[in-house]
């Protein structure tokens, strides 16, 4: 159980945009925190800084209030599992998993046994003598995870742990990571560019753009209360309605909407596609819209609407009883509206 704290971390590269400036973040103990952001947002830099594979230009990193800035990577206790697995091909699977123990001088018998137990935990029991080249990508990923966990790290750092897996394996790996993380109660930091990966894995998400922290919170807040249009768009938001907010009354050229709470300096509100409903009767927060297209997506229907010049998207589990080109009233529940 280790709390990781980053204080005014700055790391810049000569002739490159990849940079982190004055970055502050507290990573809670025993939880999974995702560092989420598009490529070039500085998330991988942060991960390597925490691992000790990079040294910051300035600022401090503490594990449980003890600075680790001068502790080299090999003795820091923050173990990183790289994105492309990097299972050493010149070693057997068992030797790979036992690698960290060997480096710490654990006797051969003992480290072989621990490696075998850890392989069991990642559902690769009996794979000790296999060659890494015989394994599938998903299996290699699990070897990489076992190899990191066997050293009992204070902090587990995972670089895009699900990104190379197909949907089925993704779910399996997610369950495995969460299960093991819970079992060992390791403070875990996941770096990913994929918002879905962050949402399904993490207890907390730190969203980064251009080396800066833009929003920190539970995964659901990024859907329900995105802090900016950019964040809403990153999480798949498409409905942005311009207007002005007076009190809790959001005035637009299409009509007026009541929002949850008054805020200042806002110019848009957004609503998740799944929260827009077809209104049963005329009420507040309603808008007349024309159905442009309705598409079956497998698990739901996706509808495109047109309100004058404004395009909106909504989804529903059941098909609409409406033909393309017909008009209907759409209802926007006020608790689903977020202004920014």
């Amino acid at each position: 159980m280790t709390t990781v704290q980053l204080s005014s971390i700055t790391k810049t590269y000569q002739g490159s945009d990849f940079a982190v400036r004055n970055f502050d973040l507290t990573i809670p103990s025993g939880k999974i925190t995702a560092l989420l952001g598009p490529s070039g947002s500085g998330k991988s830099t942060l991960l390597k800084l925490i691992a000790g594979l990079l040294t910051p230009d300035s600022g401090d990193i503490t594990f449980d209030d003890v600075s680790v800035i001068s502790t080299p990577a090999e003795s820091r206790g923050a173990v990183m599992a790289f994105q492309n697995n990097l299972v050493f091909p010149w070693m057997s699977v068992g030797e790979n998993v036992a690698f960290g123990l060997k480096m710490r001088g654990v006797p051969k018998k003992q480290r072989q046994q621990q490696a075998a137990e850890m392989l069991e935990l990642v559902q690769l029991g009996g794979f000790n003598n296999r060659k890494p080249t015989e394994l599938s990508g998903g299996q290699q990923q699990r070897v990489s995870l076992a190899r990191a966990l066997v050293t009992q790290p204070k902090v587990l750092l995972l670089d895009e742990p699900l990104s190379n897996l197909d949907a089925h394996l993704r779910d399996e790996m997610r369950t495995l990571i969460q299960g093991l993380q819970h079992k060992f109660e390791i403070t875990t930091i996941v770096v990913t560019h994929d918002q879905e990966e962050a949402v399904i894995l993490a207890d907390q998400i730190a969203l980064l753009f251009d080396g800066e922290l833009h929003q920190l919170g539970q995964p659901s807040t990024f859907y329900q209360q995105p802090a900016s249009r950019r964040i809403a768009e990153f999480f798949g938001g498409t409905n942005f309605i311009p207007g002005t907010l007076i009190g809790t009354d959001f005035r637009t050229i299409y009509g007026d909407f009541t929002v949850r709470e008054p805020r200042t300096g806002v110019s848009h509100f957004t609503i998740r596609p799944e929260r827009i409903q077809v209104a049963q009767a005329l009420s507040a927060n309603c808008l007349m819209a024309t159905l442009v297209e309705s598409t079956f997506m497998g698990t739901h229907y996706r509808h495109q609407w047109q309100v004058e010049t404004l395009a909106l998207v909504s989804t529903s589990v059941a098909p609409l009883t409406l033909a393309v080109g017909e008009e209907t009233l759409l209802y926007f529940p006020s608790d689903a509206l977020t202004c920014f």
Partner: peptide, 10 residues
Amino acid sequence: ESQARSLGAN
């Protein structure tokens, strides 16, 4: 090499 260092290799 980074992976090995992270796993505790000097």
